[in-house]
Design a protein around this nucleic acid. Sequence first.
DNA 1: TTGTAGGCGTTATCAC
DNA 2: GTGATAACGCCTACAA
Lengths: 335, 335
Amino acid sequence: MNIYDISQKAGVSIATVSRVINKNPNVREKTKQKVLQVIRENGYTPNVFARGLGHKSMQTVGILCTDSSDLYLAQAVYFLERELRLREYNSILCCTGYKLKDKKRSLELLLTKQTDALILIGSSFIEEKETNSQYIRDAAGKVPVMLLNGHMEAENIYSILCDDYNAIHDAVSKLLENGKKDTLFLYRALTYSGNQKRMGYEDAYKKFGLPVNKDLIQLCNGDVNHTKEFLTMLAEKGIYFDGVISVDDQLAIGAIKYAKKFHIAIPEQLEIIGYNNSILGTCCEPELTTIDNKVEAICMTTTATLMSVLGGKNIPSKTMLSADLITRDTTYTKP
Amino acid sequence: MNIYDISQKAGVSIATVSRVINKNPNVREKTKQKVLQVIRENGYTPNVFARGLGHKSMQTVGILCTDSSDLYLAQAVYFLERELRLREYNSILCCTGYKLKDKKRSLELLLTKQTDALILIGSSFIEEKETNSQYIRDAAGKVPVMLLNGHMEAENIYSILCDDYNAIHDAVSKLLENGKKDTLFLYRALTYSGNQKRMGYEDAYKKFGLPVNKDLIQLCNGDVNHTKEFLTMLAEKGIYFDGVISVDDQLAIGAIKYAKKFHIAIPEQLEIIGYNNSILGTCCEPELTTIDNKVEAICMTTTATLMSVLGGKNIPSKTMLSADLITRDTTYTKP
DNA sequence: TTGTAGGCGTTATCAC
DNA sequence: GTGATAACGCCTACAA
C-alpha cells in the first residue's frame, strides 16, 4: 500500500495525496476528505524511508548512556523519552558500556541512523584526556549534541547539568557545622561530575579553614555489601570518620549497613548523605538523607533546549540547575 | 557525501562501491582496498533511508514498556537493548503509560517507523477484555511481536515468560510448611502475570487443604511508605497475617517497615517474600527473601527467539522459564 | 570483475 | 487546485 495505490483509489494524483498527508492547505476540502477516507479505509501510512530520503529527518533522537539499568540513568532515559515523544520524536536507545572504544562505536553507529540529535547521559562520556573526547566533537559536526550532567566547550554541544559542586559543598558545610570534621567522601570515578563533587567537598573544608585529609577521599565501586566491607576495611586501617557523603545512594546505604554492623549510632556518631534521591533512600533504615539532583527537571530542560536548537534558535551552551537536600534520618534534621 | 562521490573519487562505478560496502566478494582485492580507503578518508556512511527503501528493514526493533523507570522494566530494557545491539539491531524505546489508548497510539506510531519487530515488556499490555488486545494481533499482522512475561495465543506472536504460577505456589507452600497459615498476598494489578501469581497462591492453599481467605488477597498500589500504612490499616481492621508475599520487592519492603514499626519479629512472627530480586532487596534490613524471575535469561531468550523468527525458522510460540527463590533474612533459611 | 539502468515511496518544483 | 516529473541514495539484476 503506497501513495500510488491511494491516489488511484481516490481518483487523484500522488501529488494531491502527498499534499493531504502533509497538511498542505492547497487542496479542495472535498478532495481532501475523499483522500483521507481512502487512507483510513486502507490503513495506509507513509513510508518513513522514502520520506527520510527527501527531508533527511526521521524525527528521531539517539540517547546514549553507559548502562540504562542504573537507577539514575534509567530515570533519565524515561524522562527524556517521555519529553521527546510528547514532541513527536522517537528515541533510539543505545547503551555503550564504559569502554572508550565501545562508546565511540555506538556513537558512530547511531549517527549512521540519521538521528536528528544525540543526547549523552552522564559525564562518563567526557574522557579525562581532552583528545579522547574528540569523537563527541566530531559527532557535533553532524548533529546537535546534548550533554546531560557533563560539560564540554564546543560548537553545537550543549550542556545541561546539576550544580553538583554546590550541592556537595553545602551538604559538607552542614556536616562541618554539626561538628563532623571527618567526613568520608565516597566516589565511583573521576568523571566531570565526580570531579565537581570532589571539589565541592574539598572547598567546604577549605572554607572552614580545615585541612583536606586525602585518606577521607575514597574510590569505592561496588554494591551495598561491598561498600559495607570496604568501610569496615577502612576502619580497621585506622581511618576515622564521623560522616559519609557519597556520589550515589547505594554507597550511602552501604555506609548505613556498616554503621549498623558495628552499632555505630546514626546520626549521632555517623551522619550519612547520599546522592540522586533514588527510591533506595526510602527502603533502608534509617531512611537516607540524600541530594536530589533533579533528573526530571534536567531532562525537561534538555529536551526543551534541544527543540530550540533544532528550531535554529540561539541558545546558551550551558545550563545549570541547583540541587536540593532531602533531609531524612541519617543526618540531624534542620533546626 | 554519497555513493556517487565515493565512486568518482575511487574511479569506479557506484555498483562496485556498493559491493564493497555490502561485503560482496566479487570485487578485486585491490579495487576493494582503494574504495575502502576513499570511504575512510571521507568519513562516508551509507544513508539508511535509501538503504531501507530497498530492503524494507532498518535493523531496528521497537521496545514498548509502560514505564522504563520501573526497576524491573528498566532492567529488561537494558538487557534487550544489549542483546539486540550484539546482533546489530538498534532499539527504539517507547514508554506507553498504562492507558489503553496511549498503548495503542504508541504501538501504531512505532509500526510507522518500520521496525523489524516489536517487543512488549510486561503483561500489562494484555488487556482483561480479550477484544481490547486486538491491536496487538493487528500489529502481529505486520511484524513479529514478542511478549515478555505476557501471553496471547495468535499468529506471529511469541511469548517468553517466567513461571510465576509455580514460583508463588512453591514459595507459599514453603510458608505453609513453616506453619504460617495466614499469608497476605499483595498485588498491583490483575495483569496476566498478576493472575498467574494469584492462582499460584490460591492453589497452594488448596493443596494443603486450607480455605482461601479473600481478606488476605489485597490490592496495594503505592510506594514503600504507602504499603506500610496500608498494612497498618489492615491490621487495625483486624485482619491477621503471619506471612506476606508480594508481586514486587517494593511492596515487600513496605511490609518490613510495617513489621519494624510495630516490633513484629521477622521472620518469627512474620515471614516476607518479595518478587523480582531487585537491588532493593539488599538495601533493606533485614535483607529480603525474594523470587528471582530471571529477567536477563528471559531477555536473552526473547532476543534469540526473535532472531530465529526473523530468520524464518519454525519456533515454539511460548517459552517458559522457571524462577528461583533467593533466601535471605525475612524467611527461615532452608534446613 | 565491473558497469549500466531501473526501482524503492516520498517530496518538491514546475506547469497547467 | 491539481497533475506530471525530477530528485533523494542505495541495491540489484542484467550486460559486458
